[in-house]
Design a protein around this nucleic acid. Structure first.
Lengths: 253, 253
DNA sequence: CAGTGGTCTAGACCACTTT
DNA sequence: AAGTGGTCTAGACCACTGG
């Protein structure tokens, strides 16, 4: 009875497996190296493939691995830091921002978006699609919703569709005075269209950054940006992408 | 040949299932309601339990469901917004912050933490454990690393251990002048100890917020805060917890 | 084409909570 | 004890990539 609480809890196999693999990745593999295939790995560890996959899934979630169908499993590079909260209050599309306009449409929007914008449910808004890349790799896809009221001088008829129109909308936005910005980050899973753009499978974990741009006391624009959760570390504060080695998630305590 | 690209892609069963369930949640269930158990649901939809679980997993990841072993699956309330980037530059532990000191130890730290702090690998630092709750529910667990150099006047011998000592360390911190703060958010999975504190299973998805507090040109403290990804929406900017209904992840486009 | 990861099945047992 | 979600198995087939 004088014994300290004995660890009677049998650790799940996949959890233990994950630890073992994680240590092996640190010591025996280098970035970009490809691991043995899942069937071999499972056999080597004496577990079913599904169990092995459960461990790999977590490691991928933590950004340690990258798996591609038809290709294999590789050791992922450290996550890249992408700045999302630059202190300067600027509109999207301001010179030097990291986004590239892709397209623009004028459509009805999801109810949640309409509510956040304070527009009517069926009132069409400009929907600008943009994408963001780092080191040549796509890291985020954005939908920017701009109510017509925010860009009153836009001649909708003249401007062509596609990137040019997107740029026109962004240009008009700059004319407003930006009063503030409110952002939120949450976990989500990639919709089919975002997944395609991010070079991932639908349902892949993403960090969704929702930003409301305030001008004239209203929400003048709403941005919903979808970042790859496996490869990105979102930074905000004074500086952009300073290194903290690897994230401290799931290390042995 | 003149046909537009026919959707020859068969949507995975679990993906379709997720959509169906998601719509059912919106229309036929209310927050807190318990769903039928997994075996029944699987039978009802004519799929294996594992497939059904794959759909439930994603819905839980998106904060739509909450599952507890031995109890059941319930409809989750909307995510709570928790502020992580208040504009005021204040030290952790400043009056009115949302955290509660739990414990404090003086230990060696993980290599990644030592590197970020700029201390030696085996140099012990004060490690303060704090927890954060909202509406009575635990939402985050934090480890705050404070090098001895940041709190030189702390009499390590006199102060008792536990919360009192944690408060003493925090109190000493306030005496430094805070010059800046850099934060980053990334996806991780809960370590065993964090999981226990967050009332989740080990490996549960979490949002890891790493913050470096700068004073005197050095990193004076490093905070690693682990937020429940299923229940939290991290907000930063001017205001704290304004409502945007539900996150816009995984809605039909 | 062979080899990879992704999906799916039908079953078993375990850990946990509640009654 | 009964019922829940969590883990695990051993197999099958599919979708995709590359030579």
């Amino acid at each position: 009875m004088g014994t300290t609480q004995l660890e009677t809890v049998p650790e799940p196999k996949y959890w233990h497996l994950k630890t073992v693999l994680s240590e092996a990745l640190d010591s025996e593999f280098s970035v970009g190296e490809i691991l043995p295939n899942e069937r071999d790995l499972a056999a080597r560890f004496g577990v079913a493939r599904a169990t092995l996959r459960q461990a790999l899934e977590q490691l991928e979630l933590e950004g340690r691995l990258q798996r591609r169908r038809g290709v294999g499993t590789t050791v992922a590079p450290p996550r890249v830091g992408v700045a999302v909260g630059t202190e300067q209050h600027v509109w999207p599309g301001a010179p030097g921002d990291a986004w590239q306009p892709v397209d623009c449409a004028r459509t009805a929007v999801p109810a949640a978006v309409a509510d956040a914008l304070g527009t009517g449910r069926d009132e069409p808004v400009h929907t600008v699609r943009r994408s963001r890349t780092t080191h040549g790799r796509p890291v985020a896809a954005e939908l920017l919703y701009v109510p017509s009221a925010s860009v009153p001088d836009l001649s909708a008829i003249d401007t062509p569709s596609g990137p040019a129109r997107a740029r026109a909308v962004l240009r008009e936005l700059q004319r407003l005075e930006l009063e503030g910005r409110e952002s939120a980050v949450e976990l989500g899973s990639a919709r089919a269209d975002d997944a395609r753009e991010l070079d991932r499978l639908p349902g892949a974990p993403v960090l969704v950054v929702t930003t409301r741009y305030i001008a004239d006391g209203r929400v003048a624009a709403l941005s919903v940006a979808t970042y790859r959760a496996d490869t990105c570390r979102l930074t905000f504060g004074d500086s952009g992408g300073v290194e903290i080695h690897h994230g401290p998630h799931s290390r042995a305590s």
